[in-house]
């Protein structure tokens, strides 16, 4: 159970070579090995969505992914969304609209939001709610989050 393996991956544009326990999940690897504590762990079984990151361009639950599975992949986390995902407008709208309170769901909520926007989806409140329905937020009641996502899409459309 204490077996380790060497992995090589790119996180937020930076290359890493690390030796990891084979049973370590990706969330713990990002947080504890790389110090990227912006990724949060809420339930450790893929339900709450807080740990959602991008793995080779697609959202993934980093608590359900082993670090060794991320060998030879490219990962983007909340620390990279402003630059690597060009999401500064979304981040600005989250801030302006108060689409976060305690901030614990925010890394996963931003990931799901970026994915929705990148897929070219419309600023349709019902569709947005469905898309983020795998991300639990105890604080906001979700309305502000939906507002921020829709505003961002509308702003991009009118550009």
């Amino acid at each position: 159970m204490n077996k380790t393996a060497q992995i090589e991956l790119i996180v937020n544009g930076e290359k890493y070579f690390e030796n990891v326990p084979v049973r370590m999940n990706l969330a713990d690897f990002l947080r504890n090995k790389l110090g990227l504590t912006g990724t949060h762990v809420g339930c450790e079984h893929g339900v709450c969505g807080a740990c959602t990151i991008f793995l080779d361009g697609v959202t993934a639950r980093s608590c359900l992914t082993l670090a060794v599975q991320a060998d030879e992949t490219e990962i983007t986390t909340i620390e990279g969304y402003e630059t690597d995902k060009n999401a500064s407008d979304l981040i600005k709208n989250f801030h302006k609209r108060n689409a976060l309170q305690c901030g614990y769901c925010t890394p996963g909520m931003l990931a799901s939001s970026i994915e929705y926007i990148e897929q070219g989806n419309p600023p349709d409140r019902k569709k947005v709610k469905e898309h983020i329905s795998g991300n639990y937020c105890r604080c906001t009641g979700y309305q502000a989050i939906v507002d921020a996502i829709c505003t961002t899409i509308q702003e991009r459309q009118s550009r």
């Binding site: 504590t37 990724t39 989250f94 801030h95 976060l100 901030g103 614990y104 931003l110």
Partner: peptide
């Protein structure tokens, strides 16, 4: 909130 949106919380 600006810091929390950039993954720089201190939990």
């Amino acid at each position: 909130a600006a810091r929390l949106l950039r993954g720089k919380g201190r939990y």
